[in-house]
Design a protein around this nucleic acid. Structure first.
Lengths: 358, 358
DNA sequence: CTTTGTTGCGCAATCGATGGTGCAAGGCTA
DNA sequence: TAGCCTTGCACCATCGATTGCGCAACAAAG
């Protein structure tokens, strides 16, 4: 029916013509406000029928222009290259769509400039809300968005200017460390001098919390954390590989246990071992903060922290759905420690001294 | 400056007020059409200065409403849970942004219904173009989009109604199979009866092409492909695990080599081996169609096909940028075989009989 | 001093949906 | 039968950017 050049989309005006009514009536019927506008049941039915026949779909640009709300929700996320962020993106899209929102996710590679540019671009399109997952500067983004009355919410990394939903990195690291210690003790292996922490930046929230959990778990096991064993060398595989390599060279022996701070850093450690000491893959106790299916099968003794993406996103959408809006507050979700594909339960959890924020 | 409720965004009217000119002049200056509208250099400069001061950003909804083009480009993709699609999404966003387009990627979980619904939703927002990556029914989608004059382009899976950029699955599978055979021969191991193909659906394009490459490589090596060894059991890890398990039980021995059709299927195979025969991880020759960093370190002898995402997306954007638009045509990009982290070169490549499409 | 051109810019319609307001027709009461 | 209320709908301004058209001012030409 629509001739190629002239008419691209069916509009309420087209429907109004066919139905012999006005566009405002059609609009009211099709957007659901017809009851309050006192359109008769009959007319509503005819209009809906015609709209169906003609294949009407609202022009969201026009709707957004007029009503200010666009029904789009944006999300920035560092990258898609690990299971954690992949799962976040997937779940986010699912939940957004379930609410009739158009999800717009964009990966910003942990580059602060790109994060800001992307947020500004999203604001240009009048997104109703922005989720900042693992953003470098969530408060800066929140400020820009607040200027345009667009609420934000932080995921994975906390901010002070908007509600934040994050994993409890402290307890996750504590439990992971405790699990490695329990296994080492069970195997009668001495870990006191040979327990490494590899990867991450000491300045970021994740890493500082995880190091705190690592230290506390060691201390609670009656040992003294060896500061030289904490190699917060950055995340990149190449960096963790280099740091691990240097450490091995300087001590001249393999560690008993290694806490690796991110799967990307774990890649580096595994690459080194696959290259220079394959056998060690079966003897070293690995702890990985973040889970990956292959990593899980790779080493004999790998414990992983799997962040509870479901729970995090449920909590986030609960905040989003809430009315009136939440104050900025921090919600921490407990991650899960996994060993051999199953959840690991800390018998030692009770000895944890301080779960509170530092 | 803007009081919270009244003014959310700076508009061309605000700027016009301040500059003492008309909105159309401001609009022309800020969208670049001012030269053809004969606005003086001076005025253009003042307007730009004021726009900067006031932090102007165009309302894309309004622009799209008027000019029909939205400067958004959509992409549907099956999932984010492997490196291949993750890399595609990341690269797509990068290139789109470089062209001033807002990328909108959405994962549709290989569900045809969800794919169509998502496409329709994107059309509602007037996206300028849609990329169908790994879509179940690219031609169906193309038809819907053509009705609204929105061009589509297929990635990863071909269609007939729009240009398609895909990996050469046939040569990839051929080379991967040849690499495994070469290794087995070098090790003096008999593979003739013990070469499995695991994973995928025999009806989909990927799988049928890869099976064809698998068969041809075996035939070209002078053997007869064993049909019972082709376990196209679906992709899911649980399915490949079950199929692999059943095969082992029925033959009572480990295969010499396994061609695994997707990393997700590889997960299932590795899971079974990690559970029941860890030692076999170091003896079986694995071929994985798709690359994963951990899988790469996992087994002693793993060859992977890494699809050339860079080349694919370059080719795709070349088609997108081209004017006049391309006819539907198929562009095949050669994937890369990787062994021990480095590209593997087929000495045997020359014996490949038919690289042509079946 | 009139005609013809050029430069520089403003006016107003337009895209499609929304929602305030107005108004006719019919029913009901006084 | 006038007055009033309810029902049912249409009219029109509006959101912000784009664009065809027109017109004033000034210069150059005749």
């Amino acid at each position: 029916m629509p001739d190629s050049a002239s008419r691209k989309q069916v509009t309420i005006y087209d429907i109004a013509d066919r139905a012999g009514t006005s566009a405002s009536t059609v609009g009211a019927v099709l957007n659901g406000s017809w009851r309050t506008r006192r359109i008769s049941e009959n007319r509503a039915n005819t209009i809906r029928k015609i709209a169906n026949e003609m294949g009407y779909a609202p022009n969201m640009q026009a709707r957004a222009l007029r009503s200010v709300r666009s029904r789009m929700i944006g999300m920035i996320i560092p990258m898609y290259d690990n299971r954690y962020f992949g799962a976040i993106a997937e779940r986010f899209e699912l939940e957004a769509r379930a609410r009739g929102l158009l999800p717009m996710t964009s990966c910003t590679r942990r580059e602060p400039e790109l994060e800001l540019a992307t947020v500004r671009q999203m604001l240009s399109y009048n997104v109703d809300r922005i989720v900042c997952a693992g953003a470098s500067d969530p408060d800066g983004i929140a400020r820009i968005c607040q200027a345009q009355d667009v609420p934000t919410i932080n995921l994975d990394l906390p901010g002070t200017a908007a509600p934040s939903i994050i994993s409890n990195n402290y307890t996750g690291a504590y439990k992971l460390t405790a699990a490695l210690i329990a296994r080492a003790d069970a195997d009668n292996r001495d870990w006191h001098e040979d327990f490494l922490f590899v990867g991450g930046r000491p300045t970021d929230h994740y890493t500082s919390e995880r190091i705190r959990g690592f230290r506390d778990a060691i201390a609670d096991a009656g040992a003294v954390p060896v500061e030289d064993n904490i190699l917060a060398c950055g995340y990149a595989a190449a960096k963790s590989k280099a740091a691990f390599s240097a450490k091995i060279e300087s001590t001249g022996r393999m560690p008993t246990a290694v806490f690796v701070n991110s799967t990307i850093s774990l890649e580096g450690v595994f690459e080194w071992l696959a290259q220079y000491d394959r056998a060690a893959l079966d003897t070293i106790l690995f702890g990985s903060f973040d889970w990956d299916p292959f990593a899980q099968y790779m080493a004999q003794n790998l414990f992983s922290v799997r962040q509870d993406v479901s729970a995090m996103l449920d909590a986030m959408f609960q905040v989003i759905d809430s009315d009136p809006p939440h104050d900025p507050k921090l919600i921490q979700i407990e991650p899960i420690v996994i060993s051999d594909g199953a959840e690991w339960h800390a018998e030692t959890a009770s000895v944890m001294k301080s779960e509170a924020h530092a």
